[in-house]
């Protein structure tokens, strides 16, 4: 049976994993929104900068990004602990993925909505934030749910910089006790979280479908 110490280690790991996922998705959504607006923008410079950002962060492995933030930035005088490094890398990465999702959702809203807003005298940003983006929420719920599940699982990659998250704690215990069952425990906890997220996002989707 599990000792109380082992249970605590597993739960602490699960807590870290959850924390990483939640923070990264929140920062990722904010970043993704600005990147998406940049990609829609007619300003060529802003547009290109956002395009390059997305191109880099979607085109290189997340593990590499995590390693760069943690090991390469100190060479330029930026020293970060493992936890903030992990959050930054995960957020920067999910922002790039979410940007394209958010851009597509915004552009799928009927053009008449922007025209009606302009005809009523609204500015571009008033129309965007009060009319267009709120309508894209419902379309965003499934892909954001997907991204969050990916993040939850990919957050295990931060064990590479020594962060004590769920998988790393399980691995440490498996090694020290020579019992692979700890991986099963970790798997069960991951499954529990992903199922919870799936359920939550299904609920959200239903709630936002009232007006369609």
């Amino acid at each position: 049976m599990l000792t109380s110490k082992q249970v605590i280690a597993l739960l602490q790991g699960a807590g870290s994993t959850l924390q990483l996922t939640l923070l990264a998705i929140v920062f990722g959504i904010v970043l993704g929104l600005f990147l998406a607006l940049g990609r829609i923008s007619r300003n060529k410079i802003i547009n290109t900068i956002c395009w390059i950002y997305i191109w880099i962060f979607r085109g290189t492995p997340l593990l590499l990004q995590i390693l760069v933030v943690y090991y390469a930035l100190p060479q330029y005088g930026i020293m970060l602990d493992a936890f903030p490094s992990a959050i930054i890398a995960l957020s920067l990465n999910s922002g790039a993925y979410l940007a394209e999702t958010i851009r597509a959702a915004i552009q799928s809203i009927d053009k008449g909505q922007m025209e009606a807003s302009k005809a009523l005298g609204m500015s571009y940003y008033q129309a965007m934030f009060k009319v267009i983006i709120p309508q894209s929420y419902r379309r965003l719920i499934p892909p954001v749910g997907n991204e969050m599940i990916m993040l939850l699982k990919d957050s295990s990659l931060v064990s590479a910089i020594g962060m004590a998250e769920l998988l790393r704690n399980a691995k440490v215990m498996a090694n020290s006790s020579a019992d692979a069952v700890f991986y099963v425990y970790a798997a069960v906890i991951y499954l529990f979280f992903t199922s919870l997220l799936t359920l939550m996002f299904q609920r959200l989707e239903k709630r936002y479908s009232i007006y369609e």
Partner: peptide, 16 residues
Amino acid sequence: CAELGMVFQRFNLFPH
């Protein structure tokens, strides 16, 4: 433009 009210063929009400 706010002095000009516009009514569109396809209404364009805000659905949310």
